[in-house]
């Protein structure tokens, strides 16, 4: 059985037709104009102030979202690790909102944040005035954090719960303060979970178009919205491809920075 390479054939066809050729197609469309002659104008169109602003805003909002998710998830992981509750039940509680359609979850926030929505009803009844953040970057960040928080919590929790408790106890026995235990023992050992949490939050947050559209009205344009407009609403596929390539470069740079940071983190352990 294990001598039949040909069994991988259909899969290789899927990779070729479904991954490699399509990605080459993006590259091709990014480098030609409408008539098929070579041009760099599509890539250069990122310099258009609207596009540049969208790219900057995407990077900024995705960064803020990732930081908030990390700041919320890391202490949560620590607490859940200590309290040692039923692991299956905790994961159940985390997956349930993850499996709800993310569009519906985002729409829920739009309903909550409406002028006569639930949140304002409570705020006014408490005499705290009205919260009017719908169609602002704040609402988009809120939506991003809400949608991607479980993707940060789950990998961090999964790694933290596997840390051998005797290591933590040994650190305490050797006189470490609780802060030092977290910083020098738990944090370095949680790094793989943190890194995959950051990846699973940052990339989708940076490239989304649906969340910014629902919570930002048409006023917040992220790079994802621009690409969607170019492809599906009468723009130019070539410009859309060019912008996608530029966006990919920024994602790769972010990931490279993250990996570098990760290696530094590991370096300090040794």
């Amino acid at each position: 059985m294990f001598k039949k390479k040909s069994l991988a054939g259909p899969y290789m066809a899927f990779i070729l037709c479904g991954t490699i050729i399509p990605l080459l197609a993006v590259l091709y469309f990014a480098l030609v104009d409408k008539n098929g002659s070579l041009t760099f104008a599509n890539l250069a169109s990122i310099a258009d102030p609207i596009h540049l602003k969208a790219l900057g805003l995407s990077l900024l909002l995705a960064f803020i979202c990732t930081v908030i998710c990390l700041l919320l998830a890391f202490p949560l992981g620590l607490m859940l690790r200590k309290s040692g509750g039923n692991k299956g039940f905790v994961i159940f509680l985390l997956i349930l909102p993850m499996w709800m359609n993310f569009l519906l979850r985002t729409i829920a926030w739009k309903i909550l944040l409406q002028k006569n929505g639930f949140i304002n009803m409570i705020l006014t009844s408490l005499g705290l005035g009205e919260l009017d953040i719908l169609n602002t970057p704040t609402a988009v960040v809120l939506g991003l954090v809400y949608d991607f928080l479980p993707f940060m919590i789950l990998p961090i929790y999964n790694v933290m719960i596997k840390i051998d408790n005797s290591l933590v106890e040994a650190a305490y026995d050797l006189g470490a303060t609780p802060f030092k235990v977290v910083k020098d023992v738990i944090l370095p050992m949680s790094m793989p979970g943190i890194i995959s949490g950051i990846t699973m939050t940052f990339v989708p947050a940076m490239t989304t178009f649906a969340i910014s559209e629902i919570l930002g009205g048409n006023r917040i344009l992220l790079i994802g919205n621009i690409i969607e407009l170019e492809f599906l609403h009468g723009g130019s596929r070539n410009v859309g491809s060019g912008l996608s390539m530029v966006m990919m470069v920024f994602i790769l740079i972010s990931m490279a920075l993250l990996n570098k940071f990760d290696k530094n983190g590991e370096g300090t352990v040794v």
């Binding site: 399509p22 469309f29 940076m206 178009f209 690409i227 491809s241």
Partner: peptide
């Protein structure tokens, strides 16, 4: 798995 979803989507659409 690591590619941004929107890039996978437009790449297939273009192909």
């Amino acid at each position: 798995m690591v590619n941004a979803e929107i890039v996978t989507a437009i790449s297939l659409m273009l192909a």
